[in-house]
Design a protein around this nucleic acid. Structure first.
Lengths: 270, 270
DNA sequence: AAAAAACCTGATCATATGGTCAGAAAAAAC
DNA sequence: GTTTTTTCTGACCATATGATCAGGTTTTTT
């Protein structure tokens, strides 16, 4: 009896229905637990829909997005979208989830205690900036969500992200204890890094308009990258001055300052 | 004949109809040019509506906002909203316009060549952070708009804002020429300042969640303020070391570095 | 005080949009 | 090759929501 078929994803790891989602890592929210791998069409279409959804949601947010837009963007009839994702909200959740897995990226790889702060900070910033450049939709989707109150990612924020921040904080503290960086509030320092790197995706339109160009180019990202790195690495001690004289008043431990470095960065004045 | 009355604002400086708007300073977009000052009820209701609209638009964006929400938030019947603002879009434009007048705030007051960089940067940052704290709705509304492509503020961006950035750039260049700050890309430096200060409004939810509190407090803002100031003022030369000994190698003019300053800021490590 | 202008609002309309459904087509299982 | 499951989709429905309007009330003008 076709009229009573189990609408929607019957049983695969790619189904996302109205559920908590986010907190769990690679969650699936369908009924009937595991079974065979997702069928080929399901896998393809799901991928296609999620990719299209990320773009559209990123540009208009949840409420600003029409399912028909996603349908168009993914080249599938609207009813087919609803076949794989029962509601728009479900699709939104799934899109967010897919994103969040990437969002943290390799922060832990770079901001790790067994790296030098200089290397770590530079790597982290470059990595974040690359994300902003290559997947601006992702950044913007996340920004939209946070701006709107972040209720769909609340689980992620208080769970995964909080832990993540804890770890980064520990790394900064270790660096500081080892005299490798000066005194900063580690958490707010991290917030600042996020803010600056994300801005190049989220506020790209604004920057581009100010710079009188249709969009930010690789050159702009590089300039931004350098500036952010310059600011961020200001917390590490001067690698040039410390060894030699170093005035005798001995102000206080951990008070050395870094030089401008990256003196090669394009001239500020003129 | 009441049925044929001129619906909506007939002729005052407070009418905003579907028009370009933004570029012009205090534009009014009604028909019949000037005339008497806005009547009392008009002035009150308009104010009330715009204030409510800012809050609601900030939380949900243009498309996520329902006129009925604004009606509710402003304690007026929906039809009355449409009496003063023909369409939702018109109201949105008016709300943005009201905001943009404040947004630039006293940047020019602080980032001015006749101030010291330290004073200027600190003042600017504190001023921006105060805005983020006291009018987070404004910041978020603007962020929403930019994220969504910024077509309603395009005029403002390429006109007013671009000129504004030009001026700030000149100030930085003067400071640099006078040896008061090191080498930085002035434009991207400004972008970074915007990014960090705005983040405390736009990403407040995220930060609060990470910090395990319902919302950011004054203390958090102060900590953020200090951190941003610390990073920003890293571009100015060290005010403590220069007078005394100062190692003899004379690395290069303008390369001195600032100390951690604000050493009283809460300990980073531990 | 009459007339005109401005203000106000409940009721109503038109449309956009999320979501459903029946039934066909395709694929997989048997 | 038959059955069962899964996929697909045009047509349809229900509702939300932006906008209008008719006619009343208040304010201002004359």
């Amino acid at each position: 009896m076709p009229g009573l078929r189990s609408w929607g994803a019957p049983s695969t790891i790619f189904s996302f229905y109205g559920n908590p989602v986010l907190p769990m890592p690679l969650s699936k929210t369908s009924r009937s637990p595991r079974k065979t791998r997702a069928s080929v069409p399901r896998q393809n279409n799901t991928r296609q829909i999620l990719d299209a959804a990320e773009k559209v949601f990123a540009a208009h947010g949840l409420s600003g997005t029409r399912v028909s837009d996603i349908a168009e963007a993914s080249n599938l009839p609207k009813a087919n979208i609803h076949y794989y994702f029962r509601t728009k909200e479900d699709l939104y959740r799934a899109t967010l989830q897919q994103l969040l897995e990437d969002w943290l990226g390799d922060a832990s790889k770079w901001l790790s205690a067994d790296r030098s702060p200089r290397e770590g900070l530079e790597g982290f910033i470059r990595s974040k900036m690359a994300f902003s450049r290559q997947r601006p939709e992702g950044s913007r989707l996340f920004a939209h969500e946070i701006l709107s109150g972040g209720r769909y990612v609340h689980g992620f924020l208080v769970d995964t992200l909080r832990r993540h921040v804890e770890h980064r904080r520990e790394v900064f503290e270790k660096w500081h204890a080892a005299g490798l960086i000066g005194t900063v509030d580690p958490t707010h320092f991290l917030f600042c890094l996020w803010a600056m790197t994300q801005a190049y995706a989220d506020m790209g339109v604004q920057m581009a308009a100010v710079l009188d160009k249709p969009r930010l180019t690789a050159v702009d990202f590089e300039a931004g990258c350098r500036t952010i790195i310059q600011l961020a690495t200001s917390i590490l001690p001067d690698p040039v001055a410390p060894p030699p004289v170093q005035d005798t008043i001995k102000t206080r431990p951990g008070r050395r300052r870094t030089t401008v470095r990256s003196a090669r960065s394009r001239r500020a004045a003129t």
